[in-house]
Write a protein that binds this DNA or RNA. Structure first.
Length: 473
RNA sequence: GGCCAGUUGGUGAAGUGGUUUAACACACUGCCCUUUCACGGCAGCAUUCACGGGUUCAAAUCCCGUACUGGUCACCA
């Protein structure tokens, strides 16, 4: 029995949106469920798209998500190199092998000829497909062109008739008619392989057992199978996964900024929560469990339960997951987590550690992402407060002024400023002004904080400080 | 346009012929708890599974057709 091996194969663009990440999650879980290996391979055959530092970025991202990379460019195993641009010779060699076998051929067609073909096709409202012009070149003709140094590509010779069956773990058997298959390019004129070719070669050479990728590649898989057959290689298991759509149901793109993992991370979304949310987007466990640790995930994951239809990214549910994870953070971890957001937004130099801790601690059950705390604590850092319509109309009610007057007196009378004494003060107001519940708390809350929602009132008052509270009254 | 796939509530989804008068979760609404807010708890929220036919004693579940959505048809990955 072969050891299960999956691979994450991004191109090094320095950007990872949640759709890519989700694919990585699935790949990781499939491998780890079988105690297999998770491999990172960099697909940089398009040299124009290369971005500096992108490989480290991918390592960082995956490590934040708790994925252990068993083999990759920075920790090579026995199947290296793990960067496609360093494997050029390998692809070339295999392409030539196919030419030898008659499954591929040299093509010397010029850009101009191809363009003309394309033009004609679009005129006839037909999809362009290479006409196989060079497919029947004789050995002598080929050698002559080669000797003359005419630029060439190597194309795969597709069968013209019959059909190819693609077996997929989530979609079942898909039948593709061979007549729709183009004699696709395997090796480009710059000597680099195309994505489709490099993929097949690498996946085989690296002993990948499960190829997990976006559903958009499903149709292409017939070509892959033909390639595997031509080499006489065993095909991997295919796991095609449906797309993740943006919140509006449209395709995710770079433009849809907040769907990038790093952006979410920088906003204060915990990688564990992101992973947990994403794995449930397009996959569901047999039980009703929703919050999963990595180990539980590895245990529960079954690729057969990946859904066939695409799903929409929903930040509200992500918020819920993230809030769950924030609540479960230890006090220390939580503090380390939110403090950077606070420091970034406010000058904390004059605040005591005790004060900062107290402030932050009352929000652990309130926020759904780290940066949210910045807005929440605004009332403690601003001098002026402005009331919105709702607050204003509340404050116009009868008795509000009496309540506030009584409250002010109580506050002034406090000598030992702490949460308990403030609670007592509020309680005294209840007696004095003869109000309770909402009519007691709301006027005070609005007067001191300017908003109708917030953390525990005594804490709020305590943190604001006597001076500020009196000033606002 | 050809080919391929998908279609269960605002969202993620369970469901593979009868125990489903369609689970669970997010969101939303209401109530309770808390002397306020939030947290938490409880309840409500699809008479119906894109639509139309068929098979069957019985269909969200099987078959056929239609519609819609998406993908794919590059010397991009």
């Amino acid at each position: 029995m072969k050891k299960t091996r999956t691979r994450f194969a991004p191109s090094p663009t320095g950007y990872m949106h949640i759709g890519n990440l989700r694919t990585a999650i699935f790949e990781y879980l499939i491998a780890k469920k079988d105690n297999g290996d998770f491999i990172l391979r960099i697909e940089d055959t398009d040299q124009t798209r290369k971005v500096e530092g992108a490989i480290d970025f991918i390592y960082d991202t995956l490590s934040l998500c708790r994925f252990k990379i068993d083999e990759g460019p920075n920790n090579e195993g026995e199947y290296g190199p793990y960067i496609q641009s360093e494997r050029i010779d390998i692809y070339k060699k295999h392409a030539l092998e196919l030419v030898e076998k008659g499954a591929a051929y040299y093509c010397f067609c010029t850009e101009e000829r191809l363009d003309k073909l394309r033009e004609v096709a679009s005129l006839n409202k037909q999809a362009f497909m290479y006409d196989g012009h060079c497919r029947n070149l004789s050995k002598e003709e080929v050698d002559e062109m080669l000797a003359k140094g005419v630029p060439y590509v190597i194309r795969q010779a597709m069968p013209k008739t019959g059909e190819t069956i693609v077996s997929d773990v989530v979609y079942g058997d898909i039948v593709i008619n061979n007549s729709v298959l183009e004699d696709q390019i395997l090796i480009k004129s710059d000597g680099y392989p195309t994505y489709n070719f490099a993929n097949v070669i690498d996946d085989h050479l690296m002993n990948i057992t499960h190829v997990v990728r976006g559903k958009e590649y499903l149709d292409q898989t017939a070509k892959y199978n033909l390639l595997y057959d031509a080499f006489g290689w065993e095909k991997p298991e295919y796991v095609h996964v449906a797309m993740v759509l943006g919140e509006d149901g449209s395709k995710l793109s770079k433009r849809n900024g907040d769907a990038s993992f790093m952006d979410l991370y920088n906003e204060g979304y915990l990688p564990d929560a992101i992973v947990n949310y994403l794995v449930l987007l397009g996959w569901s466990p047999e039980t009703n469990q929703e919050v999963f640790s990595m180990d539980e995930l590895i245990n529960a994951f079954d690729p057969k339960r990946i859904s066939k239809s695409s799903s929409q990214y929903d930040v509200k549910k992500l918020n819920w997951f993230n809030a769950q994870y924030i609540k479960r953070l230890s006090m220390d971890d939580y503090f380390d987590f939110v403090l950077p957001f606070l420091k970034d937004a406010y000058n904390l130099d004059e605040k005591s550690d005790e004060w900062i801790h107290h402030l932050v601690s009352i929000y652990q059950n309130h926020i759904s992402y780290g940066k949210e705390i910045v807005n929440e604590v605004k009332i403690f850092f601003e001098d002026d407060i402005t009331l919105d319509e709702e607050c204003l109309s509340f404050m116009k009610q009868d008795g509000v002024n009496d309540t506030l007057k009584a409250f002010k007196e109580e506050i002034e009378a406090i000598s030992d400023w702490n949460v308990d004494s403030i609670s007592i003060a509020i309680n005294n107001v209840k007696e004095k002004a003869g109000v309770k519940g909402k009519m007691l708390y709301m006027p005070i809350r609005i007067a001191v904080s300017g908003v109708m929602h917030g953390p525990e009132l005594p804490d709020t008052i305590y943190l604001l400080g006597k001076e500020k509270v009196l000033k606002r009254l």
